[in-house]
Design a protein around this nucleic acid. Sequence first.
RNA 1: GGGCGGGUAGCUCAGCGGGAGAGCAUCGGCCUUACAAGCCGAGGGUCACAGGUUCAAAUCCUGUUCCGCCUACCA
Length: 889
Amino acid sequence: MTEDLLSKTFSPSEIEPKWYGFWLKNGYFSGGEHKTGREYSIVIPPPNVTGSLHMGHALNNTLQDILVRYHRMNGFNTLWMPGMDHAGIATQNVVERQLAQEGLSRNDLGRENFVERVWEWKEHSGGVIINQLKRLGCSCDWDRQRFTMDKGLSQAVREVFVRLYEEGLIYKGDYIVNWCPRCHTALSDLEVEHHETQGSLWHIKYQIEDSDEFLVVATTRPETMLGDTAVAVNPSDPRYSSFVGKQAILPIVGRKLKIIADPIVAMDFGTGALKVTPSHDLTDFELSVKHDLARITIMDADAKINEQGIHFHGMDRYACREQIVAELQEKGFLEKVTPYTVGLGKCYRCKEVVEPLISKQWFVRVEPLAKEALAAVQQGKTRIIPDHWVKTYYEWMNNIRDWCISRQIWWGHRIPAWTCQECGEIAVSSTTPLRCPKCDGINLKRETDVLDTWFSSALWPFSTMGWPEKTPLLETFYPTSCLVTGFDILFFWVARMMMMGIKFMGDVPFKDVYIHALVRDEHGKKMSKSLGNVIDPLMVMDKYGTDAFRFTLAALAAQGRDIRLSENRIEGYRNFVNKLWNSARFTLPHCRKINAGAGLSDFSDFSLPERWLISRLNKTIETVKNAIESYSFNDAAQALYEFCWHEFCDWGLEISKIPLADKDPNVSSRSAAVLIHTLDALLRLLHPFIPFVTEEIASKLTPGVEPIIKGPYPVPDKSLIDERAEDDMRFLMALITSIRNLRAEMNVAPSRSLPVVVACASTGQIDLIRNNLPMVLNLGRISGIDIYELTGGSTPPSNSVTAVVSGARVYIPLSGIIDPEAEIERLNKELQKIKAEYESVEKKLRNNDFISKAKPEAIQKQQNRKTELSTKLSGLQDALEKTLAIKNS
RNA sequence: GGGCGGGUAGCUCAGCGGGAGAGCAUCGGCCUUACAAGCCGAGGGUCACAGGUUCAAAUCCUGUUCCGCCUACCA
C-alpha cells in the first residue's frame, strides 16, 4: 500500500496546501451559470479589506464552508460568492496613520492623490484575510471575488442612490448627527458605542427674569449651556407651572431663554427642569423642531468652542467645561454637583467621544423600506435561525430611524450629486451631468461626501452578481439560499440587505439567515477565563491543523450560545482527526482483499457485527443530514465523533480483526468490504467538516475515483437499519464490557487470560454467544467460555466474581485470587445502587396516577426497566449469598 | 429604563417534560502487531435559589439572585 500512510501520526501541514491547490486548479469551487433547479448559494459576509482572520471570521467561514461543501456533494449547483468591503473609515485611518509617519496629512496630498494612495495600500497590504480564508479551506468561488469599490459594484451603488433619491427615499438635510471630532465625519446611530462612564450632574441656577426666583437645571455637560436656547419642564409639574411662558436668564452669557412645557421632560430626574441645547443634543434638537426654538452651534468640527462661545472661544470642550464650572461656582450659579454615571457615546472606530452636531447630511428614509423587510420575515419568505432573533429584528424594524449615509471622508463611494453654482439646484445622476438640469449652467460642483460603507454592503447579494445588469448569475443564484453571520451585524447589515434586496430585486436576498454565536476574544475581551488572552486562528492551524480547528468550531457551534474556545478542546479534536487517520491505516491494507469497485451488494450473509455496523452507520447518516439541514452543526459533529471513534473504531475495527484473518476468502473479503464501505461513507460524511484529511485518505482508499469534494454525500438507507442486530449487539457488547469490568475491578492483568462462565437467561442468549464466540473471547480477553441456561439447574462456579447482564449471570472463577471480603463489598455497593434504582421504578409503577395518566409507552418502559432491574437484583443477591457462604466456610 | 441569553461534574460545554451526558482534567491497569495524539476500567453533580403546574420537572410557569450582551432622548 502507500508508504506515506505509514506515518503513525497525521501531519496536516504536508497535505493541506496540496489539496487546496488541487481543488482550486480543477475548478471544483465554481458555480455553474445555468439554472438546474437545484441551486445553493451563499454570499460571504465581506470582511474588511483592512482585516485579518480572527476567531469570529474562522467560525463564520467554517460554518459556511460546511454548508457549501455539503450541498455541493449533494449535487447542488453551488456558489459561494467571496469578497471584501472597502471599510471607509477604517481604511482611511490606516493610510492616514501611514502618512503621519511621513509627516504628512491627507490634506497635504489632496483628495485624488490620497485616494490613489489608498488604492496602492489596498493592492500591497490589503486583503491578507483572503489568503487566510484559503488556509482555512474555504471553497469560495474565487474567480468571482468582488470588492465593494469595484467598478461594477460602484455602478450598482450609484444606480441605487439615484433611484432612491428620485423616489424621495434619499434626502439631504440639516440634522443633528453623531460627529466624530477625530475622524471628522458623521456616524450613523449604529456606529456609536455607548460606554458607562463616571461623570457628574451639575445643578445650575437659572434666574427667572424680573424676579429673585431661580430655576435649577441639572446637566452632565455644563459647557453646552453656551448654546442653550430654552428651558423645558413637564406641563404637569406643579413646581414649575407658574414659570412656563416666562423667561430665564442664562448665567454668564445673559441670554434670555424661553421656558417651555413638554411631556418629554421627566419630572423625577434631576430637578425636573431641562436645559435645552438644540445644536448639541438629540432630544433638545427635537424639542427645537417642536417648539420652534433657535439653534446655536457652539462647537466646530474639532469639538472646540467656536466664536459663539464668548470668552471660551478656542477652548477644547473639556477645558471649557472646567472653566465654565469654575466660573459658575465663582458667581454663585452652581448649586451642587453630584456624582453620576453617564452612557458616553464613542466612535466605534477610534473610540473618541462623539459630539452631537448639526450639519448637512444625506439620509435614507428607511421606514417604507423597513415595512417590506419586516413583512418578508413575518410572512416567512426569510427565516431567521435561531428564531429568538426574530423578535430583535422586529423590534429594530419597528423603531427604525432614518439612516445617515454621508461620511465626510475621501475613501468610499462619492455621492453622485452635483450642486449648480448658479442656481443652487441639486442634480443627482448615475452619470456625471454636464449642465444644470434647471438653469443649464455649466458650473456644477460635486458633493464631497462619500457613502457609508454599509450602503454598498447592503447591495452585496445582488451587486456581486452583476446587478444592475440582468446577468445569468443573478438569474441562477438570487435569492441566495442562506446567509451566515453573527448577530453583531444583524442591524448594520442583514436588515439593510433585506430592505435593498426587496426594493431592487423584488425578492428577499436570502431564504435563511443563520445567526451564530460570537467567539469571545478580540479587543482583549475575555476569551479564556483565567487570562484575557486571544487565541490566534493561524497559530491554532499551525499547531493542530486546519481540520482539527474546523471540527472544534463546528462541535462548539451550538445555537444561541457564545463560544468560549479552549485549547484543550482543540487538542481533543486533533486527536480525533488522528484517530480517523489511524483507522484508515488499519483499513487500507485490506483493500486488496476485495476486487476494485466491489461494494456491499457483492456480498451476502453478513455477520451480526457487520449488520450492526452498517445499521449504526445509516442511523448516523440520518442524524448528520438532519443536523446540518437544521443548522445544528454541533449535533452533526457530535454524532460523527461518537460513531467514528466509539462505534467504528472501538468495536467495528476490533471485531473485524477476527474475520479479516479468516482463511475463507469469502469471510475476510466481506469483512474488508464492510470496513471500506463504512470508512468511505464516514470520510464523505466528515468531508464538509474536515476536508483535508478526508480527501487525503479517500485518495488512498479508492484511488482513481473522483475526489470526494465532488460527492456524492451518503444518503441514509432505511433498509439497512437493523434493530434486531442492534439489540443483539447491545447484549454482546454489554457482556464483554461486564467481563472487562470484573477483571479490572479485581485487578487482573489483561495479559492473563481467564475462563468465564455465563448462565444465560434464554436460549437466544446462548445462541448469540455461541455464534459470536471468537468475538467475545477476543474482546473480553478470555481463554474459554462455559455457557448454559440459567434454568437448567447447573450450579455456578464457586469462588467467582459475578455480574448480571440482561438477566444473564457472568461468573469469572478466580479461586485463590479473590478476596471474598473485597467481593462482598463490591457486590454490596452494586446492590445498593441497583436497589435504589429499582425502588424508584417500583414506586412509580405503584402510583395509580402514573398508571392512569402517563403515556402507555412511558409505562411500558418503566415495566421493562423493572423486570430488568429485578433480575439483576436477584442475580447479585445470589452472588452475594454464595460469596458470604465461602467466606464463612 | 426596555429586551435577550446564561448559571448542569474541577474546567469548557451538550441535553430542555419520563432512567443526569461529552471532551479535557483526576484515579487505577495496560507498549493487546491502526493509533500512548492510544487501549481497558473507575470516581466525581440535592442540574443557582424559592415557589408553582404535572402522574412525572435539569427540562414548563412565576419570583429572587448573580453573570454576559444588545438597545434607549432621563438631561
